[in-house]
Design a protein around this nucleic acid. Sequence first.
DNA 1: CCCTAAAGCAACGATACGTTGCGTTTAGTA
DNA 2: TACTAAACGCAACGTATCGTTGCTTTAGGG
Lengths: 191, 191
Amino acid sequence: MADGSRPGGRSSRVRAAVLSAVVAEVQRAGFAGLSMERIAGRAGVNKTTLYRRWGSRAELISDLVAELAAREIPVPDTGSLMEDLRALMHGVVTALASLEGAALVRGVVLEAEHADDLREAAARFWSERFAGAAAVVRRGMRRGEVSADCDVDLLVERLVAPMYLRRFVTQQPVDRAYADRVLAATMGPIT
Amino acid sequence: MADGSRPGGRSSRVRAAVLSAVVAEVQRAGFAGLSMERIAGRAGVNKTTLYRRWGSRAELISDLVAELAAREIPVPDTGSLMEDLRALMHGVVTALASLEGAALVRGVVLEAEHADDLREAAARFWSERFAGAAAVVRRGMRRGEVSADCDVDLLVERLVAPMYLRRFVTQQPVDRAYADRVLAATMGPIT
DNA sequence: CCCTAAAGCAACGATACGTTGCGTTTAGTA
DNA sequence: TACTAAACGCAACGTATCGTTGCTTTAGGG
């Protein structure tokens, strides 16, 4: 092999096992209770492997965030802006309800302030997500479903932000009905 | 003394020194990097005192949250809904920019999932804050500045949520200009 | 089938954890 | 002012996890 890297086979199995073990451990004891040795044990992997491949806990979390962020989510295109936005927001509801999605956001919120690489990974993640949502809005703008002088990025933020606030800050439930209420209240006057 | 408690004098000094040391340590190394011994050292207090008074790291953070949450913030009443809301949102901007405010929210986001007492403290905190903001909106509603069928609580959430999203999730800057944009976009069509 | 990247294993010192026993300071009371 | 007990300081303890190292074993890819 040219560069000597060996990505397939055992390596990828180890990687998958470790990342899933991290998620499981986050669920069990929270981010503050993460232990490298426990992660290794749950993943059926030696502690040494973690340090050799990731170097530190921060890099491991950073990799997890990048991994979860890399999962492509489809951008809806039904021809109706409201239907597209509804689908997008319901996707956020599902993501926030899932363990992986919650771990992703929580990891960023917790670590990003003191880990530059994680902050970059997070920035890439959010810019991609918001770009997809913004594209949806711009399609609707071309169809005349929203006025041309609308601040698209701000609109996207206003749509999704309340769900994050409830999920992580005020600890209130987030479901599709709530998403619909936010959507109606935000888009209602614009139409 | 009857119950044997002794709240004044040295006890309160120690408490103040410790809580301020926690905030300083959060700034230095983040929540994940909190060490009881380092906190004790910075506060000029023995490690034993921390464990005897608070029992655990989680309870210490919980107490800090309760302490910060107990600080009364004035609810503006200028006679104009938009001015009141602007003042409220600028207050949030200031709080998020301050170390204490960021530590408060971050502590809740980090620990609340696995600490029931902290979750209760956080719930009290947010319900008080949102009640104040909702009162402002209802005053405006009585003056006819907002329609009577408006969902007040949802409106408050929609106003403040984008600032929290930027500060903690997408890691983007939050200033008064942004708060004004959110306010204008959210209230513009209602008026 | 070989070569070697990658994982396993075992042990290390260092650090922080949480706890205990005992002596000292200090606040509140009589 | 003197007394009492709550609160803190101090020192030491065993434990757990950290992060690292040297060496051996496994298994993927040419």
